[in-house]
Nucleic acid binder design. Structure first.
Lengths: 414, 414
DNA sequence: CTTACTTTGTTTGTCTATCGTACAAACTAA
DNA sequence: TTAGTTTGTACGATAGACAAACAAAGTAAG
């Protein structure tokens, strides 16, 4: 044999494949309907009772699920209830930020068991950053193991902003960390001696919602995050969509204004959603208005205004601050209405740091969406929002590992 | 049995499913690499030679493929070459427009064999429209059968603008035909006694490109059509994406301007791509500028200006007309740059009636995209465009039927 | 022309996963 | 106690994929 041939990357089926497929279906049915009996799984999935039994036995042997007591009777023999085996081990999620690493141990239930933040000097070089990152992860695991000794760790998830090639484990481009084609996953894996998975942080946020949050059982939805930037995680057919070059979901950099005076975002793009509605944009707008003589509680402020100060002023009734948040909401609404027109999602989930002040911008956002969405599609969208919580970020990132575990690729010891 | 149970719509696998899957893979390998031998198919797909042989025999028996002579020898026994059996039958595609029906017989190769347009009185009621439509289809088939008697017709595809539920065969909402929840497919099927499939016309355009055009073998791409409106067909993972409520791809109605003076589109949305860049928008802009006293070759024009007149003036060097097309291109560029940021497609295909004057707006469009796309993602997009041709629309619509045939759901007689 | 070597397509036997049916166990209600 | 349900398992049938063996058909060298 000279060469294996040019193997197109098409998915073909065989007995193994079909078992993997059905196994995954059974597992996710248990995950989303637990506790549930074998017979009920059969009804839900359309698989035969015998097949479900065989698969369940297999999952029990692999220690991925557990039997816990019996169901109520529905007229006959009581079913044996199955649940995920959430105590089989834990996962780790770490969020890579410009000046710190947020690291957490997360249970298979999605509970954050240990969470710590480690400072990193701004613009540290790549080697230093990776070293500090790995030490932070190791120490977090050690601290956790001091309390729960011997608990297996399935793997480490890393989340960062920018373009990330999750398949190859490479950070392709990151505006915050200034990284360019860094083989992050393999380098971290070398040091940590555990499987490492990486992805864009907004994608992982969406993944967390898909596994644990509002997105459970929802086929396609969008996660819009508001904060330092504006992010978008796209879930289509129950899977993250990241485009052909890992660049899908750059919602913050889409333009919604043709005004030559419009502000610019971090990438220098003018009139983008981020340039109007991200936290820094709100602050910059306020500073500019005050410089131009607008009256506000904040004008006493010397120099830069923080988003917290702006929110406080707005809550005290400051007209200028209220208008600044309104404006942000309005432009975010234009962008989100565009998303609805393009993706027609089943659900939109709002998240991110900016949700802490959601009450200040959401009304304006919703009004704009109502005015603008084509064919009234916005009325069919289910809206959800998550209270801001750092745990949600790391939980989502840890879900990267979870996906491997639950899809049967990770081996679970006793 | 009280009820069948709540059958989630998850895809489970069994022996039939896997054969269908592999059959489809083999067929599409033949389609994209024909003529090709059984052994070469095995190399391409990763399936074993014996499986490929069995599947090929099955396809031969079902008359979907043919053996045509032998391959050149590559050192040993010569392989038997297989191709699609393009002569097994034909399909029909009909495009439903406000005042006419475009109907064509299309070969399995994608060639348009017979094409005719039938006028329909503007705003005819639903019953009348469907009757005229069905008669137009029947007559087109008859005319074709007069030349090629006895050729089997696999089915009819119908394409129309607006929201279309292709699964249930319902036209949910159509701004052009003023239809609301019309069970179009079943009603046409009753009269025509042939399987009828329907979808949004831009989706079918994309489908045509996926099967026959630039999209062959491309995993995810976007089709942007410019004309009376601005449309978008989204292909993700080799399949049309139409959203949760059939509303995905309403690109024309996304907003790219916050100017309170911005024009409105057919749905009344202000500052949308369609309001700036569709053909009527270009004409309206010209008329407005002339009313305001701008000088132009077109000012002699009494009343309305057509897009053809505008194009002619531009080609003669008329500064105002040139600027009008430039402006349309610039705004389309903003919209397309947004699409790149959101979808990160492998390829973008430009089509539609407006492509007849593409030279007048494309440079401005491309320049805007270059300036604006985040992370330079636009450089990785492959650009294609199709010369405007009415045949492309009906070919795409007929592909709806083709999909059924090639995926093995339609039965092929001898 | 003969021989050695390749490649293709088919045949055969083995393996595995699903499914339907049958059946025992477990439970309810009359 | 009995009749009827529901659950979980066991067993045989079926179907698909695959590997290995094999015959057919070709090439190339001597």
């Amino acid at each position: 044999m000279m060469q294996t041939g040019s193997q197109d990357s098409v998915e073909t089926g065989n007995a193994d494949y079909i078992r993997m497929l059905n196994s995954g279906v059974v597992l996710s049915t248990i995950h989303s309907h637990e506790p549930i009996s074998r017979a009920a799984i059969a009804k839900h999935t359309g698989l035969s009772r015998s097949t479900c039994s065989l698969i369940a036995d297999d999952l029990l042997q692999r220690n991925l699920i557990r039997e816990i007591g019996k169901d109520k009777s529905s007229g006959g023999r009581r079913g044996v209830l199955l649940t995920m085996n959430y105590d089989a081990g834990v996962t780790v999620g770490a969020r890579l930020l410009a000046d710190s690493v947020d690291c957490a141990v997360v249970s298979l239930r999605g509970d954050v068991l240990k969470h710590r933040s480690t400072a990193i000097s701004y613009h540290a070089d790549v080697d230093t950053y990776i070293n500090v990152l790995c030490r932070a992860v190791s120490e977090t695991i050690e601290e956790y193991h001091a309390v729960s000794p011997g608990m297996p760790v399935f793997g480490i998830g890393l989340g960062l902003s920018g373009l990330v090639d999750s398949a190859s484990g490479e950070s392709v481009a990151s505006s915050i960390l200034q990284w360019d084609h860094i083989p992050l996953a393999s380098r971290a894996q070398e040091q940590l001696k555990l499987p490492v998975y990486i992805d864009n942080d907004v994608n992982t946020f969406a993944l967390g919602e898909l596994w644990f949050g509002h997105g459970r059982g929802v086929d396609s939805f969008l996660c819009v995050t508001v904060g330092e930037g504006i992010g978008l995680g796209v879930v289509i057919n129950g899977a993250i969509y990241s485009g052909s070059h890992h660049g899908a979901g750059e919602f913050g950099h889409t333009r919604i204004s043709d005004d030559p005076q419009a502000p610019r975002d971090a990438l220098g793009i003018q009139g983008s959603v981020e340039a109007f509605s991200a936290d820094p944009a709100v602050c910059a707008y306020l500073e500019q208005q005050i410089r131009q003589g607008a009256s506000s509680l904040l004008e006493a402020q010397s120099g830069e205004i923080s988003i917290d100060q702006a929110a406080e002023a707005a809550r005290r009734g400051d007209a200028l601050a209220l208008e600044a948040f309104n404006r942000a909401g309005k432009y975010l609404g234009i962008g989100i209405a565009n998303l609805i027109s393009l993706f027609d999602p089943e659900m939109i989930i709002l998240g991110g740091e900016g949700c802490a002040v959601r009450d200040l911008w959401q009304p304006a956002m919703e009004e704009t969406v109502r005015e603008q969405a084509a064919y009234g599609l916005h009325r069919r969208v289910r809206w959800k929002s998550v209270e801001f919580d750092d745990d949600l970020w790391v939980r989502g990132i840890a879900s990267l590992v979870l996906k491997e575990v639950f899809e049967g690729r990770a081996q679970v010891r006793d």
